[in-house]
């Protein structure tokens, strides 16, 4: 047994880096995929809307933890190969992010009046241009508070990656706690770090929300 020391703090810093790495990967892959899902959900063609709705329903019904287990433990068995922890958790968080952002952004797109599509279409610009220049900027503004809110969920959600042995911030905390037998102190520090990151985001999201409501 030893006391909490600089070594642990360095371990936390490293763990935090992996937490942030996971968040960035989830956003980098999940956001475009989420946008794609949002577009499918609001497409003109009914088949696309149904197919994407089905996919969303299935994934949303699965707990994030189960999703992680599936990609880390389940899929390798099925494929007969070992998947690196980083790859498995990235895939799981990407899907998780895509589904949530997809639904948030769909809501934003649908909140823009149909007449905006019509006004843009009647000017003779393409469907993609209508979306890109007329609908998306308005939808994004509407969806921004919820998007930032989701970011907080995602940051906290990455702690689940600890269960597959991925050493992010929470897992670094577990290890330090086991080495020092000071769980209260260790987890207080870990919690403080999460708080320091998430609280400003929550404030920002609230702020955006009030401003949005104020401007309508």
């Amino acid at each position: 047994m030893r006391s909490l020391s600089t070594i642990d703090l360095i371990a936390f810093a490293t763990g935090l880096q992996y937490t942030l790495l996971l968040v960035l990967m989830a956003l980098a892959f999940g956001a475009p995929f989420g946008l794609f899902l949002a577009l499918l959900r609001t497409a003109n063609m009914a088949v696309l809307r149904w197919a994407s709705a089905l996919f969303l329903q299935v994934v949303q019904a699965v707990p994030l933890l189960a999703l992680l287990m599936f990609f880390y433990f389940g899929l390798p068995v099925f494929l007969g190969i070992q998947i690196p922890a980083l790859a498995a958790v990235t895939v799981a968080f990407t899907i998780y992010t895509a589904v949530f952002l997809g639904e948030i952004w769909r809501g934003g797109i649908e909140a823009v009046k149909q007449t905006q599509w019509e006004a843009a279409a009647s000017l003779g610009i393409s469907r993609w241009q209508q979306f890109r220049y007329v609908i998306a900027p308005q939808a994004f503004k509407i969806a921004l508070p919820a998007t930032v809110g989701f970011l907080v969920q995602l940051i906290k959600g990455t702690s689940l990656a600890a269960v597959v042995g991925f050493i992010e911030l929470t897992r670094a905390g577990q290890l330090a706690s086991a080495a020092t037998f000071q769980p209260l102190l260790v987890y207080s520090v870990v919690a403080a770090i999460y708080f320091a990151i998430c609280f400003p985001l929550t404030l920002w999201s609230r702020n955006l929300e009030t401003r949005l409501n104020g401007s309508r």
Partner: peptide, 27 residues
């Protein structure tokens, strides 16, 4: 075809996030 046919609506339907200039020059 739509580029040759302008339509003006009862509710104006300007693009609220764009300045007047960009509303006009977008298309």
């Amino acid at each position: 075809l739509r580029q040759r046919v302008g339509i003006v609506f009862q509710a104006f339907n300007l693009f609220p996030h764009l300045k007047v200039e960009r509303n006009i020059t977008l298309a």
